[in-house]
Amino acid sequence: MNYNEEFKRNILIKLAENININFENQQSVERILVELLQDYTVIKNETALTISDIPEKITMYLQAKKLEGLSDLTLQNYFYFLRRLSEHTHKQVRDITLNDLRMFLFKECEGVKPSTANTKVCYLQSFFRWMVDEEIIDKDPSRKLPQVKLPKRLRNSLTIEDIERLRLACNDTRERALIELLFATGCRLSELVGINVEDLNFQDNSIRVIGKGNKERIVYFNTKAKVHIENYLKERQGYGEALFVTCKRPYNRVGPRGVQKIINKIADKAGFDKSVFPHLFRHSMATLGLQNGASITTIQRLLGHSSITTTEKYTETNMESVKYEYKQSMTL
């Protein structure tokens, strides 16, 4: 059966399913179709035979990003997301359109937060920009994908009083050392869990950490943090290379989820009615540092930001600062 016959048959089937017509009318429709199709050749789109090259390009992209120093977790997030794109769009990358990406994102972003939707847009744009740079495709179909406008909210950092409450709620030397180190250094969670004992320098109170993009930098801790780290090391079980280890054998390195659980436990004991998480210490260190006179470039270096714009997002002036400055400067 040629495609003309298949097309005619499918038309008749659809009409019979959707329109209540008798056999005689069906015959009339068939005669009309035969007459019209004499001057045409129907060609069927063989989409099922199209072999997509998206998986191949994903592999190349992830290999390139790994060489740039992206973490395994970030690469994994890219992989799972782009694999879903491959499953959704059975095309060659050069044939993918803006509308294809819109339809994919419509499905992906259903019910997610605006910030999550923006992350997914960034994943797509990074992937397609790379293919343009590598001259795999000529045009970037993701270029016109819009970012969702996020509501601007003031960042609420921990106060000095909050920090003291958390300190008093610590049960052991490990909890206290962890709290002090997070607040003193402003380390990211991934940086904290990666610290080894040999990275500590007690001569100048510094630590060598590995940040985003596998970049190494030096952070500093104060005397209070030094005392509690030393106390913890004296009591710490096991002799592995990791600084923070579990309390039970085989004394493995504490992972990101383990740190979060420790902080949740301390915050619950301290009676906090707001969420307390590792990154909040990082933001609080930056905010309080600026309030106490540290320059924004110093905070930028300590936090390991490549752009000062990123630092400004962490250090937006909160209402307590506005109230304090008003009392100091505007009350006449």
Rank of each mutant, 00 (worst) to 15 (best):
169 A>L: 09
169 A>M: 03
170 C>Y: 00
170 C>I: 00
171 N>W: 03
172 D>Y: 00
172 D>Q: 01
174 R>S: 08
175 E>C: 02
176 R>S: 04
177 A>I: 14
179 I>V: 15
180 E>N: 05
182 L>H: 05
183 F>Q: 01
183 F>H: 02
185 T>W: 09
187 C>P: 08
189 L>F: 05
191 E>Q: 04
191 E>I: 07
191 E>W: 12
192 L>F: 04
194 G>F: 14
194 G>D: 13
194 G>C: 09
197 V>Q: 09
198 E>W: 06
198 E>Q: 13
199 D>T: 01
200 L>G: 09
200 L>W: 02
202 F>D: 00
205 N>P: 06
205 N>G: 00
206 S>L: 04
208 R>Y: 07
208 R>V: 14
209 V>I: 15
210 I>Y: 14
211 G>R: 11
213 G>Q: 07
217 R>F: 13
218 I>A: 12
219 V>R: 10
219 V>Q: 12
220 Y>G: 08
221 F>M: 02
221 F>N: 00
222 N>K: 10
225 A>E: 05
225 A>W: 08
226 K>G: 01
228 H>W: 15
228 H>F: 14
228 H>D: 11
229 I>M: 10
229 I>H: 02
230 E>I: 13
230 E>K: 14
233 L>N: 01
238 G>T: 11
238 G>P: 09
241 E>I: 04
241 E>P: 10
